[in-house]
Amino acid sequence: MWLREKIRRCASRLPRQALIAGFGSLLLAGCLQPVYGPLSAGGSVESELQAIQIDPISDRLGHYLGNELIFNLNGTGSHVPPKYRLKVVVFESVQTPLIDTVSGRASAATVVVNAIYILTPVGGDVPITKGTATVTASYDRNSQRFANLRAARDAEIRDAKALADQIRLRLATAFAAKG
């Protein structure tokens, strides 16, 4: 009998709670703006991203990151006159968290990459946005030297792809916020 009473009380509260939750979501619906929607000043985030010229990035990791950024920002292959310049500086380190106690060699490694990026207009020096992105990729090591080199290079490539995705999302967010 007491179970029926509890079910009846909960059922009477449910419509009221659903109404409050629905009203709250309607209030918040006007606060959200899609990142890839049209900009208030006209145009779109995609067209702004396509107009970014990427400065050359040094080293092998910079080569991988530059190619990924070119593809992520303007994957169409069309030439768009640049309105913005993106300068990226990359710092890479390798950490070996696991050491084999028998051989004394590292059995795994982690490639940590930090990238500092600055987006400026082509004719100006005042940055539109800037920031730091950090990614890591782990790989297993063994006694074969060339296998370790290739695994480290694959980890660098994975880091470059993840960094390019992070930087693209942050640039798109900055354009959407600017409107």
Rank of each mutant, 00 (worst) to 15 (best):
M1R: 14
M1D: 13
R4D: 13
R4L: 15
R4P: 03
E5S: 09
R8V: 03
R9E: 15
A11K: 04
R13W: 13
P15S: 11
Q17Y: 07
A18I: 10
L19T: 14
L19N: 07
I20L: 15
I20N: 07
F23R: 12
G24S: 12
L28T: 10
L28E: 10
A29R: 03
C31P: 04
C31W: 04
C31N: 04
Q33D: 01
V35S: 04
V35R: 05
Y36H: 09
Y36K: 02
Y36E: 09
P38D: 05
L39N: 06
A41Q: 12
A41S: 14
A41N: 12
A41L: 10
G42K: 09
S44P: 11
V45Q: 07
S47G: 02
L49C: 02
Q50H: 12
D55S: 14
D55W: 03
P56C: 05
I57V: 13
D59P: 01
D59I: 01
L61N: 08
H63L: 10
L65E: 01
L65S: 00
I70C: 00
F71K: 10
F71H: 06
F71C: 01
N72W: 00
N72E: 09
L73M: 02
G75E: 07
T76Q: 08
G77S: 03
H79C: 01
H79K: 10
V80P: 04
V80R: 11
P82Y: 04
K83W: 00
Y84R: 00
R85Q: 12
K87M: 06
V88Q: 03
V89W: 03
V90M: 01
F91K: 14
F91R: 13
E92I: 12
V94E: 10
P97T: 14
P97C: 10
L98V: 15
I99V: 15
D100S: 07
V102C: 03
S103E: 07
A106N: 06
A106Q: 02
A108V: 00
A109R: 04
A109L: 00
N114Y: 02
A115Y: 01
A115V: 00
I116N: 01
I116M: 00
Y117M: 13
T120S: 09
D125S: 15
D125V: 14
V126Y: 01
P127L: 06
I128C: 08
A133V: 09
T136R: 14
T136H: 06
A137G: 15
A137K: 05
Y139A: 07
D140M: 09
R141H: 01
R141A: 02
S143W: 12
R145D: 10
F146V: 13
A147D: 14
A147S: 15
A147R: 08
N148S: 08
N148Q: 10
N148P: 14
L149C: 03
R150N: 07
A151Q: 04
R153K: 13
A155W: 11
R158G: 00
D159N: 15
A160T: 05
A160K: 02
K161D: 12
A162C: 01
A164R: 05
A164F: 05
Q166I: 11
Q166M: 09
I167L: 03
R168L: 02
A174W: 07
A176N: 14
G179Q: 14
G179A: 13
G179H: 11
